[in-house]
Design a protein around this nucleic acid. Structure first.
Lengths: 255, 255
DNA sequence: GTGAGCTTACTGGTCAGGCCAGTCATAACG
DNA sequence: CGTTATGACTGGCCTGACCAGTAAGCTCAC
C-alpha cells in the first residue's frame, strides 16, 4: 500500500454538470434567493461560455430538482424557487416503488414514524397545536356521516398535525411519503372495506385515545396506542408470515 | 360550488418530461432492468419523434436522478443503473443545507431510526446477523490503534449490520442517508474532536452494550442504549436550547 | 490457426444557428 | 386617461454538424 499518493476515482465531468454545480452552490450559499431570477438562457450562454443546448441541459436538471422554474416568454428569466420537499418525496417514492419494498416494511416504518411523532408531540406540543389536533378530530367525527373520502382526509390531517407538533420536519416529510405509498398500494381495497360507519367510529375512538395521551403529555402511551392502532388498521393487508416485525413494534413498550 | 365539473390545475408539460416519464415508468414497471441498455440517443430520437437535444435533456434528468448512466462511445447505449440511495441523500442534504432542517432534527431522526433498528434487530436477528455485528465490533476495537478514519468506517458498518438485521430496507436506507447528512455537516469538526483513543474506547463500549442487548433479545434496552449513545455522541453539536426533543427521545423508555 | 494490431462504424458531448409561440412593457391610439 | 397594438424579448424545439472516444471486426504477420 502506497500511502504517499492517494488517487481518487475520476469520472469525466460534463459541462452541464459544472453549470449545475455553480448555480446550485450560488443558491445554497444564498447568493440567489427564492424569487430572484436567473439571467436568460442566451445570457447564461455568454456567461458560462457554453452553447445553449448545454445550458438548457443544466436548467432542466435544476428544474427537475425543484430548484428553478422556467416559464416560456418570461422576460425576467428562470425563477429561483423556494425550497420544497417535493424532490425528497419523489426520491422516496422511487425507493418504495423501485426497491419493491413490501407492504409489511412500509407499515412497520409508518408505525415507527407515527409512534415517534406521537411520542414527541406529547412532550413538545403547544396549546395551539393541541387545539389543531382537536379540530381535525372534530372534523373526523362529522365526516363519519359524509363518507370515507372525507373521513380519510381528516384522518390524514390529524396525523399531519401530530407530525407538525413533533417539531421534526423529517418525520413530517417521511411520514407523508410513506403514508402516500401505503395508500397508493391499497386505496382500492380500503375504500370499500372501511366505508362503514362502525369502522370509522372505531378509528375515531383510537385517534381520540392518541390525542388524550398527547394532551396528558404521556409520550410512551401516545406512541404505543398510535402503533397499535396502525397495526390493527393495516394488519389485514399483510400476509400473516410477515407480521412479525409489526408485532414486535406493538409489543415494544410492553412487559 | 359546482360539483359537476372539476377542473384540475394544468401546467404545460414539456416534451422532455414526457420522455422522462416514459422511461421512468418502464424502469419502475420492470420492463427495463438494471444492467440493461437504452437505445442510443439517435435511436431514441426516432422512437420518441423528438430531436436530439430534447432527448438529451430527458437523459440528463434521468442521469441526475441516478436512474441511467451515459458513457461516451459506448456502443450499447445508456445503461440502466441499479437503485441507489444517492438521490435520496442528495435531496436530504439539500433539505438540511437550506436550513429548513436543523442539526437537532437530523440527530433526533437518527436516534429514532437507529433506536428502532436496534429494537427490531433484537427481536428478529439471526445468528449470522449477530455474528456480522460482532465482527464489526471487533474491527472497531482493532481500529482504535489505527485512527479515527478506520474506526469510523467500522462504526458505520456496525450500524449498517444492525439496520440489515431489522429486516426493513426503509430503515436501512433512511438511516444511511441521515447518517451521511450528519457526517457531511460535522465531518471536519468530528475528525479532530474524536481522534482520541479514550473517546473511541468509550464509543466502542457503548456499541458493545447495544450488541449485548440485541444478543439478549431485549429490544427495549437496545433502543434505549442506542439512543442515549447517539445523544451523548452528538449533543455537543446541537445548541443547548434545541436539545429538548433529543432528551425527550432519550427519556422515552424511562420512568 | 491464432494472436496482435489497425480500421471503421458507431457512440455520446458539444456547438452554431434558426424557427416558433408565448409574454410583457411600452408606445400609439381612442 | 384607459385601451389596444406592437415589438423586443423569453423559452421550447429543431436541424445539421464536428469531435473524441469506444469496441467490434477485420487484416495480417506469425
Amino acid at each position: 500500500m502506497n500511502d504517499g499518493a492517494q488517487f481518487r476515482q475520476v469520472s469525466p465531468v460534463r459541462l452541464y454538470q459544472r453549470i449545475v454545480e455553480q448555480i446550485e452552490q450560488a443558491i445554497v450559499r444564498g447568493d440567489l434567493k427564492p424569487g430572484q431570477r436567473l439571467p436568460s438562457e442566451r445570457e447564461l450562454v455568454t456567461q458560462f461560455g457554453a452553447s445553449r443546448p448545454t445550458v438548457r441541459e443544466a436548467l432542466r436538471v435544476l428544474e427537475s430538482d425543484g430548484l428553478v422554474r422556467s416559464r416560456p416568454g418570461d422576460p425576467n428569466g428562470p425563477e429561483i424557487l423556494p425550497f420544497s420537499s417535493a424532490g425528497l418525496t419523489k426520491q422516496m417514492t422511487r425507493l418504495v416503488q423501485f426497491d419493491n419494498v413490501s407492504m409489511a416494511e412500509l407499515i412497520a416504518f409508518r408505525m415507527i414514524l407515527d409512534g415517534s411523532a406521537s411520542s414527541l408531540a406529547a412532550r413538545l406540543r403547544s396549546e395551539e397545536e393541541l387545539a389543531a389536533m382537536e379540530r381535525t378530530i372534530a372534523v373526523m367525527s362529522d365526516a363519519i356521516e359524509v363518507g370515507y373520502e372525507e373521513f380519510s382526509k381528516a384522518d390524514v390531517a390529524f396525523h399531519e398535525a401530530v407530525a407538525v407538533a413533533s417539531r421534526n420536519s423529517l418525520i413530517e416529510v417521511c411520514n407523508q411519503v410513506v403514508r402516500g405509498a401505503v395508500l397508493a398500494l391499497i386505496s382500492d381495497k380500503v375504500a370499500h372495506a372501511h366505508n362503514s360507519a362502525a369502522l370509522m367510529r372505531e378509528s375515531l375512538r383510537h385517534h381520540q385515545e392518541v390525542l388524550e395521551a398527547i394532551r396528558a403529555g404521556d409520550g410512551l402511551a401516545a406512541a404505543h396506542i398510535s402503533r397499535r392502532k396502525l397495526y390493527e388498521y393495516y394488519a389485514g393487508y399483510v400476509p400473516e408470515n410477515e407480521r412479525g416485525p409489526l408485532l414486535a413494534l406493538v409489543d415494544d413498550e410492553e412487559s
